[in-house]
Design a protein around this nucleic acid. Structure first.
Length: 547
RNA sequence: GCGCCAGUAGCUCAGUUGGAUAGAGCAACAGCCUUCUAAGCUGUAGGUCGGGGGUUCGAUUCCCUCCUGGCGCGCCA
């Protein structure tokens, strides 16, 4: 048992002896100010009312009854309105570095998920244009969430859903066709709601070059397929540049060709919550929390987009994913209720909260002090590729993950470019590089540092204790971030820990001190290197040995 | 009008599920390189946590209400 666990047990026993009603679960937190101690509890304040005592008196009684020495507590004192602060023995704090060294790359992982299959769907852009900065945020978020789940014991699959069917694709084809005709000297208007971007003209040019038999673009279907294929290739390149890989790609068109859309409609009709009205087929989604019923099959006989959406999520369930997470822009949030309602209406045992959603607020791009309009159809946007080329993959990823998903993100391209050298990501990477530098200069193999035979009592500097506490808290932070599906906790943690590492590095030397202390500090340098490296790897950012 | 998400330092944003004197980066100002990388460290300044009520030992955090901004509210995706 670690010191914290022993401490919690002792406090529980003491509280029970004082007559506190079960359940007693003393909260042990890190104090806001590290000088207060290693751990703090508000137990005396929580129990003051039920026990009819003043918080500070109760705190004294708790301290007197608990066997704090057994938990490695050196000092316990009462502060403020009734906090009890604990300072542990040096060896109890620093000795935990051994856990980090022993686990190495596995430090911070757990089996909380018990190998349960979970599918994380993200990006899922229509193949109607290159990936823009909003997709970039999804790519960073989705990939990091998948990594978090993977490192906490879930069997994760990253999935990309291509909306390669429907009206938007028709318009894409027609748009390209219009450009082809234009090149041939004719005139054909780009359809209402079509695509005007430069890339449309480029695709038209390539089509003509590769299809000499159809210089005027008469073969509409072939043009459309060519455009979709071309854009998928482009999107794949963008994702590759960003370092994101998917395990599976699911095509919306396949839902039609293999009959799953029809099956789903039939199943919904049989389940009983559908009705016909005005020549359309409706689903009674209001029975499942929606504010109005939704059309499934339009008057013209085609399906609304939400039908294949439901069919698609049925496949996730059927493929064994008892948990599904969708990362989407908040502009799609109206689909949440609808898709869930459709799945519930099938009555096939899918849980109510299936799938889970991580909705992120939109990304605005600022360039030259002004907002850049992100409109695919007007042909003006900033792509992920541009961003990555400008400031680098690591920086882009880090920037995307610095903020909570549900806070708006304004990406100042100029700032990201000009300040690339003072980018926060370099701060974290530099801390890792500095730890690596110690081993390089000292000609010590990091892998040889095991902590065996080290006198951890020699690590007595407050700077060292703060750093050690941060390092051993890493697994707790990862677990919490995974449960909350909040990768931004990682960047926050990494920055804080890097700050402690820089300070320690600056104030205390490792290689120029007596051998016993050097051995102890090498374990700290090694543990820091491991934790920063593991954290960066988790969010897909490199951890350089030198910079 | 209804729903979702936000409002914290000049700017961009954190705030460990209700705790102590609210933090970081950038921007501003003042210092620190003969020692493992100055892509670093130290210090100063900067706040009615959108406003107002409520819940309790205690609220940036929970509840109510108003204000402001973003996004939704199609037989578009």
């Amino acid at each position: 048992m670690t010191a914290v666990e022993l401490l919690r047990a002792e406090l529980t026993r003491a509280a029970r002896e004082l007559g506190a009603p079960d359940p007693i679960e003393p909260a042990l937190d890190r104090p806001r100010d590290p000088s207060f101690g290693d751990w703090t509890t508000n137990l005396a304040m929580v129990l003051a009312r039920p026990l009819g005592m003043k918080p500070r008196d109760l705190a004294e009684a708790l301290i007197a009854r608990a066997d704090l020495g057994r938990a490695g507590v050196r000092v316990a004192d009462i502060a403020g309105p009734g906090f009890i602060n604990f300072r542990l023995e040096g060896a109890a704090v620093a000795g935990r570095l051994v856990e980090v060294l022993r686990a190495g790359a596995a430090f911070g992982t757990s089996d909380a998920g018990h190998g349960t299959p979970v599918v994380v769907e993200f990006v899922s852009a229509n193949p109607t244009g290159p990936l823009h900065v909003g997709h970039g945020r999804q790519a960073a978020l989705g990939d990091a969430i998948a990594s978090l789940l993977g490192s906490t014991g879930w069997a994760v699959s990253r999935e990309f859903y291509y909306n390669d069917a429907g009206a938007q694709i028709q318009k894409l084809g027609a748009s390209v066709q219009a450009r082809i005709v234009e090149r041939a000297g004719g005139a054909l208007a780009i359809p209402e709601g079509g695509y005007h971007g430069e890339y449309i003209a480029e695709i038209a040019e390539r089509y003509v070059a590769e299809h000499p038999g159809d210089p005027a673009g008469h073969e509409a279907e072939r043009v459309r397929e060519f455009a979709v294929a071309a854009l998928r290739v482009e999107q794949d390149r963008d994702l590759q540049a960003f370092g994101v890989r998917f395990d599976t790609y699911y095509l919306e068109s396949s839902l039609y060709t293999d009959g799953r859309v029809d099956e789903t409609v039939t199943a919904l009709q049989q389940a009983g919550d559908t009705y016909e009205n005005d020549g359309a087929l409706w689903l009674r989604t209001t029975a499942f929390g929606d504010d109005k019923d939704r059309v499934m099959r339009k008057q013209d006989g085609t399906f609304t987009y939400f039908v294949p959406d439901v069919a698609y999520h049925v496949t996730k369930w059927r493929r064994g994913y008892t948990r599904a997470i969708n990362v989407q822009g908040s502009d799609h949030h109206s689909t949440v209720t609808r898709v869930r309602a459709g799945l519930q209406a099938l009555r096939i045992g899918i849980p109510e909260g299936y799938p889970e959603y991580v909705l992120h607020q939109l990304v605005t791009v600022v360039r030259g002090g002004e907002d850049v309009k992100l409109s695919k159809r007007a042909g003006s946007y900033v792509t992920v590729r541009e961003l990555v080329d400008d400031v680098g993959r690591d920086a882009v990823r880090y920037f995307y993950l610095m903020r909570r998903a549900d806070s708006q993100l304004s990406f100042d391209v100029d700032l990201a470019r000009t300040q690339s050298e003072e980018n926060p990501v370099y701060y974290v990477q530099m801390a890792h590089a500095r730890m690596s530098g110690i081993f390089r200069v000292g000609e010590v193999d990091p892998a040889s540092v095991t902590g065996v035979g080290v006198d951890f009592g020699l690590l007595t500097e407050p700077d060292e204790w703060e750093l050690i506490n941060a390092l051993v808290d890493y697994p707790t932070m990862v677990s919490a971030a995974a449960v909350a599906l909040e990768p931004h906790r990682l960047t926050t943690y990494l920055h804080e820990t890097a700050e402690l590492a820089h300070r320690w590095y600056h104030r205390h030397h490792v290689l120029s001190v007596e051998p016993a202390l050097m051995a102890a500090r090498l374990t700290l340098a090694r543990a820091t290197q491991i934790v920063l490296g593991n954290g960066l790897a988790l969010i897909g950012i490199s951890a350089p040995e030198r910079m």
